[in-house]
Write a protein that binds this DNA or RNA. Structure first.
Lengths: 196, 196
DNA sequence: TTCCAGATTTGACAAATGTCAATAAATCAT
DNA sequence: ATGATTTATTGACATTTGTCAAATCTGGAA
């Protein structure tokens, strides 16, 4: 049992020490702020209008951050896979009502931390701010790449890019989600796949 | 003369103390790392393929970070206006060759800092890391909003949004740049403006 | 002022993509 | 396994947007 519990934080600990060295004591403190839970396929963790209370680290599975327009059409803003941390970022950071939903697209195993704990750690541990800052840089760079692809590429180019950079994503997720992640209709995506 | 020199850093000092309190001594150290220069209209500060050596704070004017495809078509990734800091972010941060160009679209007055100084300050001053981290959060949130608009809106919606959130930008910049910032052709933009 | 270079607008047409509807395929719960 | 429900594909067509070319407008230099 102890072995199993320890295992729950194994990936998170790796995540902390990915770019910098963190002492065992600090790692323990950081982990202690994260609670563990499992989610069901399709489970909605946050609805638009709510203030995001948590940020999520994915041990296993996949979370999807998406918006819905007045006609019920969905657009996927971000996908959070194994060993990544994510949330409805503007809402979590500014503690404002969210424009986005968060949904577990697969049965998942996640660790989550409250905004309060997250920010207290920023004030208490410079190392935590360092870890977070480096993570922000990576996330921001990824979002810049995404913006570039959205303003410069047509549907086929965007799909090919995803094939090259993230082929597992295509195999794993329903094409409906791939389509609205790319900002194209599922019919267009379906045609791209057959035509090549 | 002393008064004029001090004035050059006035906006930068305000920028530092926008979200947190910074001592005068620290502010002085931070400012000392930024050099001052003026740019001409159209001047190119960075070319694709080069590693971005500097990050720029704009006192006056506007910088444009843009990409160019094989056919010479340009896409504006970001615009940096007064009292904002910006650069070819992935290149500056990772010190890799840039995919983007940086150009001064107006005669501008800027302060710039080297990557080395920037990172040394991160290791020396936790306050600097804090300032940078908060700035990253804001920039990242802005980029998320931009991604949302790119995947959910058509050309007219994107233009209307820009009109509402940033009307000065439309008056100030040539419509060619507005168009490739929105990821649409200048002809489409021109038609949108006349129709509604 | 006058002229020129660049920017903007407009028109005609082509290409890409979206929408709607019907069908086929896959997945889930029982 | 089997039916029910969701998801994916395909076709026909409408709409949006891009492309190219020409015309018009604009601001700065001589």
């Amino acid at each position: 049992m102890i072995g199993q519990e320890a295992d729950v934080y194994r990936q998170l600990k790796q995540y902390f020490s990915k770019y910098i060295t963190v002492s065992d004591e600090q790692t323990s403190v950081f982990c202690s702020k994260f609670k563990h839970r499992r989610t069901k396929r399709g489970e909605v963790l946050l609805r638009a209008g709510e203030v995001a209370p948590y940020s999520y680290f994915v041990n296993k599975g996949c979370l999807r951050v998406y918006m819905m327009d007045a006609e019920g059409r969905e657009s996927t803003r971000f996908l959070v896979f194994e060993n990544c941390i994510g949330t409805a970022f503007p809402s979590f950071t500014l503690q404002e009502p969210s424009m986005a939903y968060i949904q577990s697209v697969e049965p998942s195993e996640i660790l989550y931390i409250t905004h309060k704990d997250f920010n207290e750690m920023l004030d208490t541990f410079p190392v935590w701010e360092r870890i977070y800052r480096i993570d922000l840089e990576r996330e921001y760079i990824a979002s810049i790449r995404r913006i570039e692809s959205l303003i410069t590429m047509d549907a086929k180019q965007k799909y090919n890019m995803l094939m090259n950079t993230n082929p597992s994503l295509i195999q794993r997720l329903p094409s409906k989600i791939i389509a609205d992640y790319l900002g194209i209709s599922q019919e267009t995506l379906s045609r791209l796949k057959s035509k090549k």
